[in-house]
Design a protein around this nucleic acid. Structure first.
Lengths: 325, 325
DNA sequence: ATACAGGATGAAACGCATTTCAGAGCAAGC
DNA sequence: GCTTGCTCTGAAATGCGTTTCATCCTGTAT
């Protein structure tokens, strides 16, 4: 309940001196410093950070916008951002949007409202152009390639990664390749389609809409894929699965049904999650942890002012060969 | 950049009127309300929430303290808390502690510093007694049973749940039962040991230290259990595994090594995670989502002042019979 | 005509810590 | 002896929105 004024009064100094003690400024005599610190302890004084935020114009909070927390992809990214934030003494404010555009705008508004010093967008449903409008109020970093923008981004080149996975499958003799996506209209799906179409062209294969399996987000969606494959007249011999958890579900269900992997169905996952390592899943490591850390690092530079121009940082990816192809 | 004073000046009204418009108070004439709203739009005014927080003494933020975000148990709990927070317009500030006591105190200090209106502790390393000291500064809700305390808690009765699982195993003919834990000195481990010792007594079985497998947190730890079982002279015929992910690792590895489940090894998981449903894992549903939601609901009541006394809310659990026993 | 309730409005106090500025005291340098 | 440059200190301005209180006005009840 006590405030800085009360401390000053009881310690017999001015509020400025108390503030100096609080902030470890030099130029306070040992004697007064001790007196102030004693009074602080006696009165169990705790600073009202809201006043600090108001006067300094900084909150040491950053917002992290994502559709849902309970998903391995976002957990990993979040872990990375959190790691960076922790070591720089920033706090993370969770903005779980469920891809609701209103919620997303609400999150971005925190920047306008000075509630946060910056925001990292893991995934959003509103357009990059709309996000761009918020750059006037503070730094924004996105974990998706959004092209040349007024905000920074950290991403992996999904087209390139997909191309690499496809090439690998072709080298292994596959011509009938399908893939799964989380949602059809996401930027990464778009990026993947580019590489996919390229491949079809090259192999002279037709575009089979049903080989692009939509709404594959978690392990059970993965298990459900088998059923979807069984009802197809023509089945792909290989599947690129976005997410090791989805792939794990698929592999499990394949085993249960006696479909042998990789002989009857080759699978490549994404994310390089522990579950994939355990299952011997060939996967693309897309460096989620590093991406999160890098996102924070860049945001931090923007906040500190050491970097004012938006940066686009493309991360490497790596094909990890295991036993599912 | 504009502030309420500037809006007032340009709209030709007082700051009080602007504030009233901002907060949808009645008693503002239609005409002035419109004038103010127009000016707000023109100047692209955004409220400085830090000033609001300072004057109102509330931030609409709550802290959520947990060791790591990248873990299914905490993800599920967090999802629940987040759900509640969202619908009550509260923000979640993530305090990832890694069980560092300093970090935990830092999180609790946010309460003293008025940075948050309340805090929910999912799991902590510091003692309940130390947490209790912070209750003077604001409401705290823990997701573990800490006995009669000055803070509220939401929990499941781990002893009871364990007992139920053990009874079930005994009914199925098992006498040699082991179990896994995340860390040996956690409150839930203690609770489980009570039921476990009871069972040993009843069956007249000796306490075999090696049948309590420590440090089992994720899927790979689960897979590693098989190796640990193989080097034992005597092996348990059934294992209670804390976490469906750990159990999934174990099941997978058992299959790989040709150990049939449940014939050679029966397994009961915890958490009722989708991965367990997929694998036909018998498990105890400990209502993580509901626990998170309930934790927030109680915290909310404390913040609103509708509930001032600490409450202890014990949640039900449910044994879900599937094929692993 | 009088009283009273309620709508509408603005001035001012309030919440609290940081920072600038001015000034005092004192030592070192010329 | 005088200037320069620290060290140390406090008064006051600052950041910005909310809320209380007093006041004025208008319509309705008596």
């Amino acid at each position: 309940m006590a405030n800085i004024k009360e401390i000053a009064r009881q310690a017999g100094v001015s509020v400025s001196t108390v503030s100096r003690v609080l902030n470890n400024h030099p130029y306070v005599s040992e004697e007064k410093r001790n007196r102030v610190m004693d009074t602080i302890k006696q009165l169990k004084y705790a600073r009202n950070m809201n006043a600090v935020h108001l006067i300094t114009g900084r909150t040491m909070n950053i917002a992290i916008m994502l559709p849902f927390v309970n998903h391995v992809y976002f957990s990993a990214l979040m872990e990375g951002v959190g790691k960076g934030a922790l070591s720089a003494s920033y706090r993370l404010i969770l903005c779980q949007t469920g891809y609701s555009q209103d919620k997303e705008r609400e999150a971005l508004d925190m920047l306008r409202n000075r509630e946060v010093d910056g925001i990292v967008v893991l995934s959003s449903s509103i357009s990059p152009t709309e996000i761009e409008a918020y750059c006037a109020y503070g730094p924004v970093v996105c974990c998706q390639d959004a092209g040349e923008r007024r905000f920074s981004s950290v991403y992996i080149n999904h087209t390139e990664a997909f191309r690499k996975a496809i090439r690998y499958l072709i080298r292994k003799g596959h011509r009938h390749i399908g893939f799964t996506v989380g949602r059809m209209d996401s930027p990464s799906t778009e990026a993947r389609l580019i590489a996919y179409r390229e491949m079809l062209e090259e192999l002279g294969e037709p575009y089979r809409k049903e080989w692009i399996l939509d709404r594959c987000l978690d392990i059970e969606d993965g298990a459900a894929i088998m059923e979807r494959l069984f009802v197809m007249k023509e089945r792909p011999s290989a599947l690129l699965v976005t997410g090791d958890h989805v792939a794990a579900g698929l592999i499990y269900e394949a085993e249960r049904r006696g479909v042998s992997i990789p002989e009857e169905l080759a699978v490549i996952g994404f994310d390089n999650h522990p579950i994939g390592r355990m299952l011997g899943l060939t996967t693309i490591d897309n460096q989620l942890l590093q991406m999160g850390e890098m996102a924070f690092a860049i945001l931090h530079e923007h906040i500190e002012g050491t970097q004012t121009a938006p940066v686009r940082h493309e991360l490497d990816f790596e094909l990890i060969e295991r036993a599912s192809v």
